[in-house]
Amino acid sequence: MVFNIRQKQSEAVQKLLNLNTALNPNKDPGEQYKVLVLDRFSRDIIAPLFRLNDLRRHGVTLHLSLEADRQAIPDVPAIYLVQPLPQHVDRIVSDAAAGLYETMHLNFTTSLPSRLLEQMAVGAVRAGASQRVAKVYDQYLSFVALEPTLFTLGLPNAYVELNDPAAKDSQIEAAVQSVVDGLFSVCVTLGVVPLIRCPCGGAAEHVAGQLDQKLRDALKARNNLFAEGMLGLSASLSRPLLCLFDRNYDLAAALQQPWTYKPMVHDVLAMHLNRIQLAPRNNLFAEGMLGLSASLSRPLLCLFDRNYDLAAALQQPWTYKPMVHDVLAMHLNRIQLAPELSTTGPTASSQC
């Protein structure tokens, strides 16, 4: 059984951008203009999956930050993709009360708790803006898909929160719940109910127990989130295996890396969300190594997940230099010869 977590998440986001309706091959999804409102975490979800041109093909003319002050655009629908947090619910209610958009399609990265749903409903009714909220969806997208077989939960402080001796029980429980929500989102996106294995004791067992209970509750619910939950024996014979380990079990594994260029780029150039950004004056590739001019007027942004030649080159071992050198030279030359073709990304910087 082969899973492509990146493709599955991309398809889920495409459906979200189509106002949660199935994509019609005979209809251009860009015919209806929309505004996309994201919080910080959901921006990280979207960034590895879509460029600005990809969003435009789905009718998204603007992508805005939930936390920023925004002007009213009353003639277009707005698609929200945010975490289910109290401050986000308050901001959504204030947007509805201010009439910023014609309709609001609310999508949450995980299940919206009942108390927050009630809080949002009461606030919208009191503001007389309940008619602006078109739909509310639980999307289960609380993870970042970097590669077809690689994802991250986007929790850089999880290890510290789970192992801090001064942490309160409520803080540890919140950290465990964040991990459980992320793994549950992965299972829902893939449409599978895995077999869970973990060592006894520690955070791994705690996470596994809560995840197991959440999967059981989802299978018993009226609206079953898993297609395999109703297939009987045939589904149980093809269930994947999910192994959870505590990082304390083997600390050295986090420091080990293969002898390829990608881990080196990740460590040296601070790769984040499959991209690196090099300032014009500190461009390591512009002079010396490739003999190119360093007269870039904007930062150089390299998207390794979007360029298959560059991604393949980074998988080569350190001893294999010709292919990597040629690929980097080709793309840097393309940027300098045709800079107008390199401004289609989500930031005002050149891309390769």
Rank of each mutant, 00 (worst) to 15 (best):
M1T: 07
V2P: 13
N4L: 11
Q9P: 00
L17Y: 06
L19T: 03
L23H: 04
K27P: 00
K34Y: 04
K34H: 03
L36E: 03
L38C: 05
L38S: 09
R43A: 10
I45W: 12
F50Q: 02
R51C: 02
G59C: 03
L64I: 08
R70I: 10
A72F: 00
I79P: 10
I92H: 03
A96W: 02
A98M: 09
G99I: 03
G99A: 08
E102D: 12
E102C: 05
M104C: 07
N107I: 09
N107R: 00
S114C: 02
L116S: 03
L117S: 10
Q119D: 13
M120P: 02
A127G: 05
S130H: 10
V133N: 01
K135V: 10
D138F: 07
Q139T: 07
Y140D: 13
Y140C: 04
L141H: 03
T149V: 10
T152P: 05
L155V: 01
P156S: 01
A158P: 04
N163S: 14
A167L: 04
K168E: 14
D169P: 02
A175M: 13
A175W: 05
A175I: 05
L183V: 02
S185P: 03
V186K: 01
V188Y: 06
G191S: 10
G191A: 11
P194R: 00
R197A: 14
C198I: 01
A203E: 07
H206V: 14
H206L: 15
H206E: 15
A208E: 13
L211R: 03
L215G: 12
D217I: 04
F226C: 07
G229D: 14
M230Y: 06
G232N: 04
S238D: 11
L241W: 03
L242T: 02
L244I: 11
N248H: 06
A254Q: 12
A254T: 05
L255A: 14
Q256P: 01
P258A: 07
Y261Q: 05
H266Y: 06
D267A: 14
L269G: 00
L269H: 04
M271F: 11
L273C: 08
L284I: 15
A286T: 01
S293D: 15
A294L: 08
S295K: 11
P299W: 12
C302W: 13
L303D: 13
D305Y: 08
D309H: 10
A311S: 14
A312I: 00
A313R: 01
Q315V: 03
Q316Y: 04
M323G: 00
V324M: 12
V327E: 12
H331R: 08
L332A: 12
L341D: 09
L341A: 09
P346A: 13
T347G: 05
S349M: 11
